[in-house]
């Protein structure tokens, strides 16, 4: 890249700046992890120190000792995993339709996908609640209190953005490839899944980051739709326990937040490369 041509002192200055910014950006995270490891009295100390000499696992113990904690973790994984995979597939099909076909209402649909992202989710929980309640009566598995009641709304809310992002990837696959495939006698389905899909996969990875984070970190649906079946609760509920009317348990909050953030970070690091190349592809036109 053009980094090569920059004169040495400038590059060193740029690198120093990058490291400094990295430190500043990482500092709140460091503070979070630190507070999670500090003994209770030190978290409340009026003279905060940026280290601790007596690291303690008490806060983490309070997190993991919660009833059903492992279950919540698995539920979160299941919900986020399903949403990521399903929204990837559905959005891929939809993005293919709006980029590689020309039909009436195409632009209207595109605008709709954009508008759908603007809907304030908080306001929609009330109508959604009644919808899920009534749907649960007829279709088992998607009503209130089921994991389906978390998966479906998250799927619906992550789709518009996913379609919007994926358009660029689908468009970037050369038309010539498609024509060649048909000339070779490939069916539409074969082209779609065997040729187009693998080429768009990095873009799917990048897109999946968004649906994963929004689903994984969600409190709203989890506390609105999982009412009586506590065994179907998700991880954020294990964090909310530490926010209390008569005094927050800071150590517990920080430990639970650390536990919640780590899987996302791991996921990020895994898809980091594809994320960068992917987002690049999404926007090249």
């Amino acid at each position: 890249m053009n980094a090569l041509r920059i004169r040495r002192p400038w590059r060193l200055a740029a690198e120093a700046a990058a490291l400094l910014v990295a430190a500043v950006v990482a500092f709140p995270l460091y503070w979070m992890v630190l507070a999670a490891f500090k003994p209770a009295a030190e978290v409340q100390s009026a003279a905060p120190r940026p280290w601790t000499l007596r690291p303690s696992l008490d806060a983490f113990r309070r997190v993991f000792d919660q009833q059903d904690f492992g279950r919540y973790f698995l539920n979160s994984l299941l919900v986020a995993g399903t949403v990521v995979v399903a929204s990837g597939l559905v959005a891929f099909l939809a993005a293919t339709a709006v980029t590689r076909f020309r039909f009436r209402f195409r632009t209207t649909l595109l605008v709709m996908f954009l508008v759908a992202q603007m809907v304030p989710v908080e306001a929609l929980t009330i109508p959604l609640f009644f919808l899920l309640r009534d749907a649960g009566g007829t279709v088992p598995g998607i009503g209130l209190n089921t994991l389906g009641s978390l998966i479906l709304p998250h799927l619906a809310f992550s789709l518009p953005f996913a379609v919007w992002m994926l358009r660029g990837f689908v468009r970037a696959v050369p038309e010539a490839l498609e024509e060649a495939a048909y000339l070779d006698g490939a069916s539409r389905a074969r082209f779609l899944w065997r040729i187009l899909f693998p080429l768009v996969l990095p873009g799917l990875m990048a897109t999946s980051v968004f649906s994963f984070i929004s689903t994984w970190n969600d409190f709203l649906f989890a506390k609105s739709f999982i009412i009586s079946a506590t065994e179907n609760s998700t991880l954020p509920m294990a964090l909310l326990v530490f926010f209390k009317d008569e005094g927050n348990d800071w150590g517990g909050i920080m430990a639970a937040s650390t536990v919640m953030t780590v899987p996302v970070l791991v996921f990020f690091v895994l898809v980091q490369r594809r994320l960068v190349s992917g987002l690049g592809g999404a926007v090249k036109d």
């Binding site: 609640f129 009644f130 309640r133 209130l144 209190n145 506390k223 609105s224 739709f225 009412i227 009586s228 079946a229 509920m237 909310l240 326990v241 926010f243 209390k244 009317d245």
Partner: peptide
Amino acid sequence: PVETRAQRVKAAFNDPRSA
């Protein structure tokens, strides 16, 4: 969790099956 009580309880009033 105490934090979620408002939603839960209202939901329970609104959906007697979950209550």
